[in-house]
Computed example of a mutant assay.
Amino acid sequence: MRRRGLLAALALGACARSPEPRLFTLAPLPGEARPGGPRTIELRRPGLAGYLDRPEIVRAAGPYQVGLAGAERWAEPFADMLGRVLAENLTQRLPGSTVFTEAGGLSADADGVVELDVQRFDADAAGRVTLLAQVAVRRGSGRREGTRTRSLRLSLPAAGDGTPAMVAAMSAALAQLADAVAGMLRGG
């Protein structure tokens, strides 16, 4: 009995010393609003490289190495957050279009579908954020009718040191991705 009490006290002491997690979220950013997109757009749940599919914030730590940002975590599952923020960005850029996510509570027949595969989305040791993604946009009712694909590599420097500056640069990269996707949805 005594041993269990000692183990419980040690476990509680270890928990008391662990730092509180700092939670971060990507934010939508405004862009050029231009009509001409499909009336309804379904944004499918983004595919993620395995190393990004975790609650911890990932940074490049050196050649062939990534690191986790300790107690700094995403406030929601990363793929869900990417989809939510990209949908908000697209809604702002495509007035007259209704954008909904596959992961959300709505389902409807969509006039346009966006699929996204994120292969890289992190910051290097110097704080430069890189977003590498493949995008497929379909307009029309046929499975292959009007499908356009594009590979995008976006790279932006963070405006300062630390995680808040990195997350701001990631939000800016996601806004640039939304600009490109909106153009594809308009037929450009």
Rank of each mutant, 00 (worst) to 15 (best):
G142H: 06
R34C: 00
V129E: 00
L177D: 03
P157F: 00
R44T: 13
G160F: 01
P21E: 04
G5R: 14
T163M: 14
D122N: 07
L177I: 00
E20C: 01
V118K: 01
Y51C: 09
Q92S: 08
D161N: 11
W74G: 09
G140Y: 09
E145S: 13
P38M: 10
G104W: 06
L152A: 05
P63K: 12
R150F: 06
A9F: 12
R139K: 13
A8F: 09
P63D: 10
R120N: 05
F100Y: 15
M170D: 02
D124L: 02
L185S: 01
L68Q: 13
L23G: 05
R139G: 10
C15K: 01
M1N: 08
A103P: 02
R3L: 15
G142Q: 05
R150W: 06
L131F: 01
R3T: 10
G140A: 09
A110P: 12
R128N: 07
R39W: 06
V137C: 12
G36Y: 11
E115P: 04
M170W: 03
V114S: 04
G31K: 02
A49D: 14
A108S: 11
A173L: 01
L86F: 03
R45G: 03
A182E: 02
A9L: 15
Q65K: 12
R144Q: 13
Y64I: 10
P77R: 08
G142P: 04
R148D: 11
R84C: 03
A11V: 14
R153Q: 13
V99M: 04
G70A: 15
G37M: 07
L68T: 11
E42W: 10
M166S: 04
G5N: 06
G183E: 09
L174T: 00
P21Q: 07
W74K: 06
L12S: 10
E42S: 10
M1G: 10
L132Q: 14
L154A: 00
F78S: 07
N89K: 04
A173M: 00
L43V: 11
E32M: 02
A61M: 05
E145K: 05
L116C: 05
R45E: 15
G105L: 09
V167P: 03
L23E: 08
Q119D: 11
V113P: 04
D161G: 13
D109R: 14
V118F: 03
T25C: 04
D161T: 12
R22G: 03
E20P: 01
A61R: 14
G96W: 05
A136D: 09
P46S: 04
D80P: 04
A175Y: 01
L10K: 09
L106G: 07
